[in-house]
Amino acid sequence: MAAEKLTLVEAVAEAIHDEMAEDESVVLLGEDVGRSGGVFRATEGVYDAFGPERVIDTPLSETGIAGAAIGLAASGMRPIAEIQFMGFTYAALEQLFTRAARMNARSRGQFPCRMVLRAPFGGGVRAPDLHGESMEAIFVHHPGFKVVAPSTPHDAKGLLTAAIRDPDPVMFFEPKKIYRSFREDVPEGTYETPIGEAAVRREGSDVSVFTWGASTRPTQEAAEAVAGEGIDPEVVDLRTLSPMDTGTIVESFKKTGRAVVVHEAPRTGGLAGEITALLQEEALYYQEAPIERVTGWDAVYPLYELEDFQLPNAARIEEAIRSVVEV
């Protein structure tokens, strides 16, 4: 299959474009997604290709966008809704929690909520308040959603394609810090990266490092750095947060007996706690050292220059890896 070098944000646009070409019931809605191509250009060219009927610049209202997407799904369409930043989904949470996540259950399958809600998440772009949130755990906590967070252009396209085709509401969180950080080969034409499968980014035998989204980059850097010291880390990019690929997580841990979990989201109530509990339940007897969490602080997201101290960096991750390996 032919491939082209794409950034993550270009891969998102390509997935949307290809699925809209493939399936007439796919429509795109959100603020500034049409003529302007989105504040991050994630829908660049889609309006030109499919026109104002299927690519709709909506009034400015996140609850309206989410509510309309739910109704579109009920009508038999397959909406892709964009919320400009994850922090703006707060205004849509009532629609998402009280309806999107439970419509299939409450209608006993008559009205599946086939929708994708895309939102850039995480910090690192020096933007104002509510532009740097990592609140993926709240969506994982609510039954009924699937929650996806790709970290590479290849996965962004494949996972978004799978999300659009999935019959359940998929919260698709895109790591905006690495929207344009690198290019990689992305196959032309449509393909699916399965929802619910983690990817082992680096195989190793000494310690398992679990992460997702933009944190995958500093985690891989840290892994290479400690590899120079003779430590052999395995890096697992979860890619899907719900349903979590517990099999791959447990298997990796059984091999290494040691774990570090890295996420941008605040520590308390974050998914690192969930992963730790999973390992206690499923693989306690393989455990060689306390599990370390490298996370955002339990602080209201610090802005601008202070962001540097919030996001897990390679130095912190390296330190955590050394600390669990040394026990």
Binding site: S61, G64, G67, M77, P79, Q110
Partner: peptide, 25 residues
């Protein structure tokens, strides 16, 4: 009809979306 809502008011944008979809069809 869509299933009953419990969170009052949320049905309004949902119905807008529902009829938008039917109109597109």
């Amino acid at each position: 009809r869509m299933p009953h809502i419990v969170a009052v008011g949320t049905q309004l944008p949902q119905t807008a979306g529902l009829m938008w979809g039917r109109k597109l069809q």
